[in-house]
Computed example of a mutant assay.
Amino acid sequence: MSENNISFILTIIVLVGFIIYQGYQYYTRKKASTVLTEEEFRKGMRKAQLIDVREKNVFDGGHILGARNIPYTLFKTRMVEIRKDQPIYLYDQGRAVSARAAVKLRRAGYEDIYCLKGGYEKWTGKTKRK
């Protein structure tokens, strides 16, 4: 086998591995939480723990009224502040970070987890700035 063939085969193996990994990540994130539309999110957020996982400076620039800030970068150490007996409503700017936070919560034994579809970026409800 020539070096070109070996390089091509290795490239294919790496590419297939990457695709499998991304598929696994997608499945894990999808399974960890329920994605809610803004309307569904609004209906339940008063009875839930509303958590913004964006960084503090972004949170201070504007957040959903009633949300508390637990930045994703501090999530592992601060998720003990989240109660297991109440629903958890997560959001970030879009949805990728809140999905990762949901996976961490699910692995830690939390069950009632929801993420805002479109995140803060698409939110049209009441907001607050610090």
Rank of each mutant, 00 (worst) to 15 (best):
K43P: 06
F59M: 02
A101S: 08
T73P: 03
R78W: 06
R106Q: 14
M45V: 03
Y26I: 15
F8R: 13
M45K: 04
G94Q: 05
T73L: 08
K47R: 11
S7N: 15
A32H: 03
P71I: 10
I12D: 12
R68F: 10
N69M: 07
Y120E: 05
I113S: 04
A32R: 00
R54Q: 05
I70H: 04
D92W: 00
V16H: 08
I6W: 05
G118N: 04
A96L: 11
Y114N: 02
A99E: 02
V58R: 02
R78P: 05
K30A: 13
Q22R: 14
T37E: 09
K104E: 04
T124V: 12
D92E: 13
L36P: 04
L10H: 10
I12T: 14
V14C: 12
K117N: 06
E111F: 11
Y27W: 11
K122W: 07
K84Q: 15
T28W: 02
P71M: 10
P71F: 09
K126Q: 12
E38V: 04
Y114T: 01
Q25G: 14
I113C: 06
Y89E: 04
I82H: 03
Q25A: 15
E40N: 06
L74S: 10
G23Y: 07
Q49M: 11
R29Y: 08
M79N: 11
I88P: 01
V103G: 01
Q22F: 11
A102V: 04
I13C: 12
R107G: 09
L50T: 00
Y110P: 00
K76I: 13
I64C: 02
L10K: 11
G125H: 12
Y89P: 08
V58K: 03
D112G: 01
I82V: 08
I82S: 00
A32L: 02
I13K: 10
G66K: 08
M1P: 13
P71R: 07
H63I: 02
V97Q: 01
V53T: 08
Q93W: 05
K128R: 11
G94R: 02
F75E: 00
C115H: 01
L36I: 04
W123D: 08
E38R: 05
I9M: 15
I19N: 07
I64H: 00
K31N: 14
R95Q: 14
I82T: 04
C115G: 08
L90D: 03
D60C: 06
V97D: 00
R42A: 11
G17P: 10
A99Q: 06
V14E: 05
S33A: 15
K56F: 07
T124F: 03
T37R: 13
P71T: 10
L74T: 14
Y110G: 00
N4M: 15
I64R: 00
I70C: 01
D52I: 02
A96Q: 09
S2H: 12
K122Y: 11
K128G: 03
T28P: 02
I20D: 03
G109C: 12
R129C: 05
R107T: 09
G94Y: 02
V16T: 07
W123Y: 11
I113L: 06
L90M: 12
V58L: 12
I20Q: 06
L90F: 05
R29A: 01
G119T: 10
R107Q: 14
Q22V: 12
